[in-house]
């Protein structure tokens, strides 16, 4: 028993240590006065890379682009998800299970393979390289998973509350807006944060659907920076940290709810 316990602690401590290793370069390099793609212990630490990055007009613009696109996509997907989620949670109808299963399938759809037809489609309808096109596609990608998460959370709000309202003569739609939504607000807020972070981390959608420099969000900007001829890796690292920290904080905040909703399963 004791040996098992020691073994468990050792294994988990080692695992945690391994998980930290990749961050070492990022953190050390971002405070380093010289640029190096490899790992070098710098002679001294400096905040200069952060200063340079934060005074660069181009980077600041990409941060704003990242915010606008992530938030735009988030609003759209949440808006389009609340209604269907409510119906799937409360109403019984013929196609329910089939629709639910297809939404579950779309949730894990290998989206990347859609980008090339989407790209051709966008060029043909003049949405290529536009802010709205990018936001619409980011938005649609999250609709299935949002419906799924919301539906599973709605399942846990007791039906008796709306039933009471319904008895009073309110219609379904009214009960959705006045009785149900206020109760669901916490989970909706969490979902907004979650969507935002997912969009913030999305690289390939803007990478393929956008090309103008002033439209590129931070994710693509970092990658482009990585590929330039005379890269300054310390600034790259500093910029990556600025990009990563909000994502991590917000993710930590919302993950618990997402998992609870995701592992809810299908109740036929």
């Amino acid at each position: 028993m004791k040996i098992t316990k020691i073994l468990t602690y050792t294994v988990l401590t080692l695992l945690a240590a391994i998980f930290i290793v990749p961050f070492i370069w990022l953190i050390v390099e971002s405070f380093s006065p010289v640029s190096d793609l490899g790992f070098v212990i710098p002679s001294h630490f400096t905040l200069a890379p952060f200063y340079k990055v934060l005074t660069n007009h181009e980077f600041i613009n990409s941060i704003y682009e990242g915010l606008i696109q992530s938030f735009g996509g988030t609003l759209i997907s949440v808006m389009f998800s609340i209604g269907p989620a409510y119906i799937f949670s409360r109403k019984k109808f013929k196609l329910r299970l089939y629709l639910l299963l297809s939404i579950l399938f779309l949730t894990g759809f290998p989206v990347f393979s859609l980008l090339i037809p989407e790209y051709i489609f966008y060029i043909k309808i003049s949405l290529y390289n536009t802010l709205i096109g990018d936001i619409l596609f980011l938005g649609v990608l999250n609709v299935p998973i949002d419906i799924w998460i919301l539906k599973n959370s709605f399942d846990q709000i007791p039906q008796s509350i709306e039933r009471a309202a319904f008895m009073d003569g309110a219609s379904s739609i009214k009960s959705l807006f006045y009785v149900f939504l206020p109760l669901a607000l916490p989970i909706v807020s969490v979902l907004i944060i979650l969507n935002f972070v997912v969009n913030w981390g999305n690289f390939y959608v803007p990478f393929i659907l956008l090309s103008s420099n002033h439209l590129l969000p931070i994710a693509v900007e970092i990658y482009s920076f990585f590929g330039t001829f005379n890269v300054r890796y310390n600034e790259l690292a500093a910029f990556s940290i600025i990009y990563t920290i909000p994502a991590i904080i917000l993710y930590m905040f919302s993950q618990k709810y997402m998992i609870k909703a995701l592992s809810g399963g299908i109740k036929g």
Partner: peptide
């Protein structure tokens, strides 16, 4: 219901959303 804890957390969420 352990999933929904509106009172204290709700405020935090709203603040964050407003900030964003």
């Amino acid at each position: 219901n352990p999933d929904i804890k509106p009172k204290s957390k709700l405020l935090t969420y709203i603040v964050i959303v407003i900030m964003i």
